[in-house]
Write a protein that binds this DNA or RNA. Structure first.
Length: 152
DNA sequence: GCCAACGTTGGC
DNA sequence: GCCAACGTTGGC
């Protein structure tokens, strides 16, 4: 079992949206970055746990936890010409982009802000701190435990 | 809305 | 395969 951090813009899709979804489960799609895609396709597994991170908003940081309930499959949006995630170079035989399904687990009592993460000596090695722009990234068990503790 | 950091594209 | 130009992410 591995730990991850997924970023989302709450104006587009928030943790609350996931909590409100049927069975509190939804497709995590629209990932269009190769490094993030490779993690999704090759590493993210059913049962893995995910820190849900809100970017581009007032209170930037980790807001809660989700769980992976289905491992990678072809992101249907890449085949949909109506979608902003359409990719004409993707084919059914060789899809280019992947998505997973996640289920809501919990919402933190308080947001673990990016500021507090950056201020914490034990969290300096987080991908979030070192490489700002990756939307799917691995988290260590130590980082996970500390952030979960800070959010409670 | 600005802008730094980083990713992608495309000419050569 | 290099690298300049351009596009996107994301904090502030």
């Amino acid at each position: 079992m591995q730990y991850w951090l997924f970023k989302t813009e709450p104006d587009e899709y928030s943790l609350q949206d996931l909590a409100n979804a049927p069975q509190q489960t939804d497709m995590w799609d629209g990932i269009r970055n190769y490094q993030a895609r490779n993690f999704l396709r090759d590493k993210v597994a059913e049962g893995d746990r995910v820190l849900m991170y809100h970017s581009q908003c007032k209170n930037v940081g980790v807001v809660g936890i989700a769980e992976v309930v289905r491992a990678a499959y072809a992101d249907p949006a890449q085949f949909n010409q109506e979608s902003k995630y359409y990719d004409g170079k993707a084919t059914l035989e060789s899809p280019r982009w992947f998505c997973v399904d996640i289920r809501f687990v919990s919402q933190f009592n308080q947001v673990v802000s990016l500021k507090s993460i950056k201020a914490h000596p034990e969290l300096q090695q987080m991908v979030l701190v070192k490489q700002g722009r990756l939307s799917v990234q691995p988290v260590t068990a130590q980082e996970w435990q500390l952030i979960e503790h800070l959010g409670r």
